[in-house]
Amino acid sequence: MKMISSFDKITDYFSPVIKQALIKINEKDKKDTHEIRLRIGRPVCIVSFGQERFLTTDGDITNDSHLALIVNQKDIEHSFKAVCDYSIHSFSRELSQGFITIMGGNRVGIAGSAVVKEQRVDTVKYINGLNFRISGQVIGCAENIFNKLFTQSSIGLLIAGSPGSGKTTFLKDLCRLVAKRWRVSIIDERGEIAAIHRGEPQNDIGNKSDVFDGYPKAEGIETAIRVMNPELIICDEIGNKSDVEALVRTVNSGVKIIATTHAGTLAELYKKIYIKKLLELGAFDYIIILGSGSELGMVKEIQAIPYGGDYNYDA
């Protein structure tokens, strides 16, 4: 397996002081960093393997918060503007959703005060925290599953895992593999799978893939089926009603689906009514559960789904 981290690509989004400290971090720690968190008046946090530690001005990572580099309002403002590419007007939809995907498919979560219009979050003001989730491409991490399940024809696959279990990383690699064989449409609502920058994917997503970047899932799925005639649809983090309704139409049109969803165990997964509906319709042939924490990057469980969803609820 080959790990491609985009740590170095994100340092430009930080204020000069934090950037200097980040650059000084040793290569191993850079590789292990999954998140960088900025909170006003509090230390810069580096998250690796679920553990949150603090960054010093010298680039050391420590558990002692007294030695840590403290984030001020200007640091947050600097990063927020940079994340928005100095163009708040271009990111209103993302701001209302609370995150922005930046270069390299890295996702930045935004915490602040909500501006509510017509009972919906319209935008965010007084930003108080930013969470940079560093995306990586682990080439080869989905090869075992691909060789095992995609032997003869394309299949419907649901990838489940708890937050931070590497679902998207796994999906990206699987996408690279399946798009070598089949015609794939990627519905990349958050821009994390293909990491499109000015029309060009920055991740290896295979030769036969078309990317619907930034499309809301339901709309993207329908457009893809209508105009690209895909054999497989790939999308990340399904779960709400409109996503599932669009996927039901996909199933009816005979296109296979590969998707991810939040669920740490099969039991947890079966409790989700919309997912249950998809399983009953035969949208997926297999479910895989990814491990987290010490089992990060491992496939914990594979379950075949018989048509009609006669699956084991107590698994």
């Binding site: 708040i88 007007h89 935008t123």
Partner: peptide, 8 residues
């Protein structure tokens, strides 16, 4: 430029 939403 870029410091507010589209309306702004």
């Amino acid at each position: 430029l870029g410091s507010s939403d589209t309306e702004g």
